[in-house]
Simulated scan of single mutants.
Amino acid sequence: MHTSILRNRVTRWGTAVLLAAVPAATAVPAQARPVSSALPATGQAALWSAGRLTVSGPVAKPQPIASVTKVMTAYRVLADHPLKPGEQGPMITVLASEVSAYHAARRNGESVIPVAAGEQISEHKALEAMLLPSANDMARILARWDAGSIDGFVARMNETAAQVGMDNTHYADPAGVNTATVSTAPDLLRLDQNAMANPVLAGVVGEKSAAVPVAGKVRNSNPLLGTDGFVGTKTGWTSAAGSCLMFAVRQGAGHDRDRLAYGVLLGQPGGPESGTIFMAARRMAAAARAGR
């Protein structure tokens, strides 16, 4: 797709969508540097630092991505309903059918957040409820509110993926539970950069905790946040996807403080409590700071 067409769409959708903001090389594994020892030998990984891409694993093979899916959900919601920093946005009414769906998802062992029929939650609070504790039910509520139906929203997710240049990505649901929702580390790296360019989305994934209606205080599922320069982005885990992580980390101090490196890890061993994936992310961040 030509850059001029992308720019026209950016203008039409507003400043929340920065479709042309990421260098094209992030989507082309063949242009990557040789595999660094800082990247894990398992699963697949990608690191973007100082204008250079490093990858490892089968990065051209799409695989399930679990809850990192919710970054695209938030990105698309903010494209359709842009917010400025500090704004709460329009109110969303939770439907009785969505409360029933919450209970069903909870019985199935999904990551969910309590909701109540008729509950009023702002767009910003809904994004916090989805992204911090990784609530699948809030992802579905946001999708229905944004597009009128979950299926309609998923179609929009795939449109956006194509426009961003995520050629090896397919979304089948807004939460990442469906194993047909697949992507690659380089594709998600491109999304990570675009998402963090949105100050509202970057602000939400940078919160350690937030207070939301009904559920009360929720905490960010990313233990790296606020340590060693990590400022986002999203965790994920399912038995099919393994441990997954998108992250953004500051390059250093001084003039480098505002320069970010971005990383993606997919299909890593260990469950969400093992910590293996977070140790891998720390090694990648250290390599980025060292310029390797």
Rank of each mutant, 00 (worst) to 15 (best):
Q268H: 04
P186C: 09
G165K: 14
T235V: 06
D256W: 14
G267D: 13
L201A: 08
A175D: 00
D173C: 05
G263P: 07
V205S: 10
A290Y: 00
L225A: 03
C244W: 03
A280R: 12
M279V: 14
H170R: 07
D173P: 06
V164F: 14
G242R: 00
G206S: 01
M284A: 08
M246E: 11
S209Y: 13
V264M: 11
G267A: 09
V231A: 00
V214G: 07
K217T: 15
D256L: 15
P272F: 05
A180G: 08
V182T: 08
G165N: 11
C244N: 13
Q251A: 15
R283P: 05
V182E: 07
H170L: 07
V177I: 14
T169C: 04
D173T: 02
R219C: 12
S209D: 07
T227R: 15
R219H: 13
A287K: 09
V204K: 12
L265D: 07
R259I: 13
T179Y: 14
R257F: 14
P272T: 02
A210D: 00
A210M: 02
N194F: 11
G270E: 10
M166C: 08
T169G: 08
L245T: 03
G263H: 09
P272C: 09
G271L: 10
N168D: 04
R283I: 03
A185Q: 02
T233Q: 13
S221K: 13
R282C: 02
G236A: 04
S221D: 08
L266S: 10
A185D: 01
N194I: 15
R289V: 00
G229Q: 07
E207C: 14
G271C: 11
L266W: 10
G275K: 14
T184W: 03
M246A: 11
G254H: 04
S274I: 04
L266A: 12
A195W: 09
A280L: 11
G206M: 02
Y171T: 02
I277D: 00
L260W: 15
Y171D: 08
D173E: 05
F247T: 06
A180D: 11
V212Y: 05
M246V: 06
A195S: 10
S239L: 13
V231C: 00
T184V: 02
T179H: 15
T181S: 02
A175Q: 01
A215D: 10
S239M: 13
R219K: 14
M196W: 06
A197L: 12
V182A: 03
T233K: 07
G270Y: 13
T181H: 04
V205P: 12
R250W: 09
